[in-house]
Amino acid sequence: MASGRTAMGDKTVIALNLKGVGHAYLGRTVLDGIDLAIAEGEIVALVGPSGCGKSTLAHIAADLIEARAGRIDRGYRRHAMIFQEPSLLPWATAEGNVAFSLKLAGVPRRERAGRIVETAERVSLLPEDLKKFPVELSGGMKQRVAIARALAVRPDFVYFDEPFTALDVALRRRMQDLVKETCAGGQLSGLFITHDLQEAARLADRIAVLDSHGKGVLGVRIVPSARPGWDDTAVFDWVQSALKHDPLFRHIHDVDERQIA
């Protein structure tokens, strides 16, 4: 696993490869010349200031938007996506929402119930929660259902599109732990979009920094997450020193309100 995480050598299997990807909204270029490769079993965090086109890139990679330029090779079998808003169907119960992705994935009806229970357990959803409608669930519970919906289809690649931005600090930590636990098996690869470097360092194997104006990936840093004692203190120290000394991270907290996503 470690070999796949660090060096993108010849032997690693590439789960996702973006080459020269570009995109424009109404003639305005938002992304240009993006190269990014994610190996199997690896989580790459994509950070950058707000409005730099991170989400757009994730949507292009997940085939929600068509890229205007470049090449996208998807080596994975099946992807799932977790959005910033839970995006649950309001008319379906939590169970129905998880079943929705299973239905779309073509899982036969009789297998669905078992898969739902199994996945709900993984994200600590109680059976009584499964019967509730999204309106009856708190923000954290809704996001849990969204995670369950993504994991139920047994994806080997997950797109995280700033999934925890809207949650409060304590809840965000719990959700991050949840993601860490579910990815611990190493079968899961993922692209984690965030503007929180702390979050990126906690979850990812590598951190890629996107240019403020979407003109390419500025650089990639390997997170020493395999190191023994990689706890919160270590993450904090690493982030602080990275922000202070690494020029790559100099602009990630820049905010330009005029720029729209």
């Binding site: 992807h79 799932a80 996506m81 959005f83 995006s87 929705f100 992705s101 779309l104 994935a105 919906r149």
Partner: peptide, 10 residues
């Protein structure tokens, strides 16, 4: 957002 979600799940 729901359209996008449904699309993301294929």
């Amino acid at each position: 957002g729901l359209d996008r979600m449904a699309r993301a799940f294929g």
